[in-house]
């Protein structure tokens, strides 16, 4: 490895090579862009034309996020129930 390459790797922050730190609070928010991409692909592969795709993708996105929120609430209630009655 040349000294210039060594210096570059050791000192300079390079996108995709050096990871971006993610704070724990941001972890939940990272669901939103991923859910949007899933919704867009899910709707796009069913569409004969792109007309109406943004609206249907938005509805699917809201369904995914709402479903995940309900699951989270359900598991939280179950967790509290187990802690309260079984321990």
């Amino acid at each position: 490895m040349t000294s210039a390459m060594h210096w570059l790797l050791a000192e300079v922050w390079i996108p995709f090579v050096n990871p971006i730190p993610v704070r724990p609070g941001v972890r939940l928010l990272m669901l939103l862009p991923l859910a949007l991409c899933v919704a867009v692909v899910y709707r796009a592969i069913r569409a004969r034309t792109l007309r109406g795709l943004p609206w249907y993708a938005l509805l699917t996105f809201l369904n995914i996020v709402g479903g995940m929120a309900l699951l989270a609430i359900g598991f939280y209630v179950l967790h509290e129930f187990v802690l309260h009655f079984w321990t």
Binding site: F16, V17, V40, L50
Partner: peptide, 23 residues
């Protein structure tokens, strides 16, 4: 147009993942 939509919808999570995790 559909090609661009699908390109963005797959590439965005892929490269976000690589950027966050490091290659």
């Amino acid at each position: 147009a559909l090609a661009w939509v699908l390109f963005l919808a797959v590439s965005l999570p892929y490269w976000t993942g690589v950027a966050i995790g490091g290659v």
